[in-house]
Write a protein that binds this DNA or RNA. Structure first.
Lengths: 187, 187
DNA sequence: TGTCGTTTTTATCATTTGATAAATAGTTTA
DNA sequence: TAAACTATTTATCAAATGATAAAAACGACA
């Protein structure tokens, strides 16, 4: 997804402000398997996915648990770093070769203080992420693993082709074996 | 908790901007049991809790599931209304008599467009709520009900005295009977 | 095409949680 | 204080999930 569209989808900006943000963004291509964020590190950039798919995970004992999946148009952010300048708890791994837009957090923070349009764009950005997080939370609390699996397929129809089932299982909050059983019961 | 402290804890504002926000806020006292937000309704205000405790819940079949608890200093917001001007999915019930600070969403939206300090305050507000939501999500996915129960007691030591166990159980994502078993195993 | 390595499914058993009902404890009100 | 509610715990059985191991399916590649 192109940069202009990503920016506008968050919150439409006048051309001047949009160009200021654009000027702060660089593009990178990184290979499949690349670890973009490392746990226990303060991340200094946020990214937007132009092309590709990624996951965030953390460890519970020795097990990786995927708690976020992002694809074209989605932002990749270590919230602890972005909001509090603190170490994050997640690794982010690219599951395909990815084309990314990179934006330095520090630069963005400066723009927030200088340009009210950009400050409101940043506000909207967090608000939209908050809505996503809240929906996810409610799904975890209200829906069965089967319902969450079906909802995921509906929202990300290509996900089965792009993400190993082990990651999807932990994202849904069940073991891989349990997800296999769920899939067997649906067919 | 007093209004100045609530505002500053989100993001310190210069006196001028702070006074503008303060001037937009009114105080109300509402009785225990009052339904502050109704599901399927666009809410036109957000609130901050000066004194008291409240919960947000929605229905799963015939069962109420509590998915948010707030006490002194916490904001009460229907995110769907606040962010998207759309109907919320939750009721909010006051679990004690509450003293609340009320702020009209529309007025706040105007201030966001006029005052860059307030725009950044609003950005910070959503960022902090996002951090809370993400932590909650990760706790649901990574921790057992027993761990979540113990963490809740640690964060809200008075909660057992203030909130019926049935609400706490659904907040933790288990049935009341299951929470009873958890409590029996801890003692 | 056949082999190796990885991913996914199936099988088995133990554990946890849910659903339902009944018992106990605690609170409110006449 | 007694009666009537309401909240919480305990008991029982059924269903869902986890842990572990093994089998089957799939994919990469010589």
């Amino acid at each position: 997804m192109e940069l202009s569209q990503i920016i506008d989808t968050i919150y439409p900006l006048p051309t001047a402000s949009k160009n200021i943000i654009k000027a702060a963004i660089t593009e990178t291509i990184l290979p499949k398997g690349h670890i973009l964020f490392k746990a226990n590190k303060v991340e200094t950039s946020i990214y937007f996915i132009k092309k590709g798919i990624a996951r965030a995970y953390a460890y519970s004992d020795a097990n990786q648990i995927t708690f976020w999946l992002g694809q074209e148009g989605d932002p990749i952010v270590s919230m602890q770093s972005y909001v509090n300048n603190q170490k994050g708890y997640e690794d982010v791994e690219l599951l395909e070769e990815c084309e990314l837009y990179e934006l330095k957090t520090e630069k963005l923070q400066d723009l927030f203080l200088e340009d009210i349009k950009i400050a409101n764009w940043g506000r909207k950005f967090s608000e939209l992420e908050l809505i996503k997080s809240e929906k996810r939370l409610i799904a975890l609390q209200f829906n069965t693993a089967t319902q969450r699996y079906l909802a995921l397929l509906k929202n990300y129809p290509s996900i089965l082709q792009r993400v190993p089932l082990a990651h999807i299982a932990s994202y849904l909050g069940v073991t891989q074996v349990s997800l296999s059983r769920i899939r067997a019961n649906i067919k």
